[in-house]
């Protein structure tokens, strides 16, 4: 059988897309708050105001005309990331790690001319990657130098940590590790590895690659399970604090670990994907239900984190 029965999934506590949309994102996320997380510039702003670290903003390309000056502007920076302010699913992100002569070197090692770069930025501005195809801006920002602890288990990109927050309480976490198949990107549907992370300890537990359960990285062959994510408690703390900052009831926080600067918030997502369940080999529903019943008692960030550690993490 290639299908599970709905009953099996319900017993496993799997959250489906329809239920996520109906009972979580539509119910707990006010539409007026979406721009805070959909526009990465706004996200950066509220994070900085709250004293949380984000990758430094180098510049914003807002109109087509600025593209002609892009090359001279970028000459100040050796490496950087360009991304659409309102992009989804990691589409349209360019990671430049250095230069070879006139050309830029991408994270994948491929080279890119300044014309190609200009075209890509122009696509971003026309809204090719934005939600609903509106005109967009291109953000140029600091390229995260990830913590060397991840060197053996990532390939050509920036591994990140996603924590799902429901009513201020961390629900589930995963690490996303780029592979050669994902072209250095950290999205599961693009071929990145998802590894479930224990909320209490920050140690990776299970991992999936293209829906297969694995325990070694397909490119580096290093073990993926039982890896301790550094600064775990700090990551949890940042994620839980985002609840007050955004006002969203159900969302995902994507963070990276810079080897010099520590945890940074990359972006937030008001409709976080459901693959995290596969990465953790566990459904979200039971955990969400538990939080719903106790939400009223949990007032401070500390209480919520404690609840996640002691009540949510042990749930199986």
């Amino acid at each position: 059988m290639i299908f599970a029965t709905p009953r099996q999934l319900r017993e496993a506590g799997v959250l489906g897309i329809n239920e996520r949309n109906c009972n979580y994102t539509l119910m707990h996320n006010s539409r007026s708050l979406y721009p805070l997380v959909d526009d990465k510039l706004q996200t950066k702003k509220i994070m900085l105001e709250a004293g949380l670290r984000v990758p430094e903003l180098y510049g914003v390309v807002e109109i087509e005309h600025q593209i002609s000056e892009l090359n001279s502007y970028l000459s100040h920076y050796r490496d950087f990331v360009i991304k659409p302010a309102q992009g989804t699913g990691g589409d349209g992100i360019i990671v430049i790690t250095g230069r070879v002569g006139d050309r830029y070197r991408k994270a994948s090692g491929k080279l890119m001319t300044s014309q190609e770069m200009g075209h890509q930025v122009s696509n971003i501005l026309s809204g090719l990657y934005s939600l609903g195809g509106h005109n967009d801006k291109a953000i140029i920002e600091y390229r995260v130098k990830f913590d060397p602890v991840f060197d053996p288990i990532s390939f050509q990109g920036v591994p990140d940590v996603r924590i799902i927050i429901f009513m201020g309480v961390p629900v589930m976490a995963m690490m996303r590790l780029p592979t050669s198949a994902s072209d250095g990107k950290a999205n599961l549907h693009q071929g990145a590895i998802g590894a479930g992370v224990d909320l209490a300890t920050g140690i990776t537990m299970t991992a999936v690659f293209k829906n297969d359960v694995i325990d070694r990285h397909p490119d580096t062959n290093a073990p993926i399970t039982d890896v301790q994510v550094p600064h775990w408690q700090e990551l949890m703390d940042i994620a839980a604090r985002c609840y007050e900052l955004t006002g969203l009831g159900y969302f995902g926080v994507d963070m990276v670990l810079d080897k010099n600067l520590g945890p940074m918030v990359l972006e937030m997502n008001a409709r976080p994907g459901l693959n995290i369940q596969i990465a953790n080999r566990m459904g979200l529903s039971h955990r969400l239900e538990l939080i719903r019943t106790h939400a009223a008692e949990l007032k401070t960030v500390g209480e919520r984190l404690e609840f996640a550690r002691t009540s949510i993490a042990p749930l199986d």
Binding site: V14, N18, I278
Partner: peptide, 18 residues
């Protein structure tokens, strides 16, 4: 519009969890 059950293809996608 208020259907919160699983989609047919999700039964396959999340089979590993069952």
């Amino acid at each position: 519009g208020r259907y919160t059950g699983y989609r047919l293809l999700e039964l396959r996608r999340f089979k590993v969890l069952a």
